[in-house]
Design a protein around this nucleic acid. Structure first.
Length: 109
DNA sequence: GGCGTGACTTATA
DNA sequence: ATATAAGCCACGC
């Protein structure tokens, strides 16, 4: 946790399976709500594929970046669906059910 | 070492 | 309602 990237990776890495988070949310959890851009760049860099679930991070609309997905637009939906994430008909994630609050399961106050 | 860009977000015109 | 502007950090040249 020395730079924004480290914090961002730490947050994204802690996203529980079957849930998703947004850039702004990760940024806020990382410490600064304006790191959304850095979060995007951090995932774009994806220094540790397989360890950092980039597909669990979506934009504010619950949708991946248009045309910039890690492997394809439909790829994300498949991965998230495989984890148990609910999707809407428009292809957006069901934020109401699968949006990660930043609290790990079993760590609720 | 400086400048520009980028997977975002929020606010204003 | 859409479009534009500003703000943050890291990387590439």
């Amino acid at each position: 946790m020395e730079n924004a990237f480290e914090r961002i990776y730490a947050v994204v890495r802690q996203i529980p399976r079957g849930k998703v988070s947004t850039y702004g949310m990760v940024a806020q959890l990382a410490g600064n709500p304006r790191w959304a851009r850095v979060v995007g760049y951090a995932l774009h860099s994806n220094p540790e594929p397989g360890v950092i679930p980039c597909h669990r991070v979506v934009d504010r609309f619950g949708r991946p970046a248009p045309g910039f997905a890690f492997g394809g637009e439909g790829r994300q939906r498949a991965l998230l669906e495989a984890e148990g994430v609910s999707f809407r008909e428009d292809g957006c994630v069901d934020m109401e059910r699968c949006l990660w609050n930043g609290l790990r399961e079993g760590e609720m106050p």
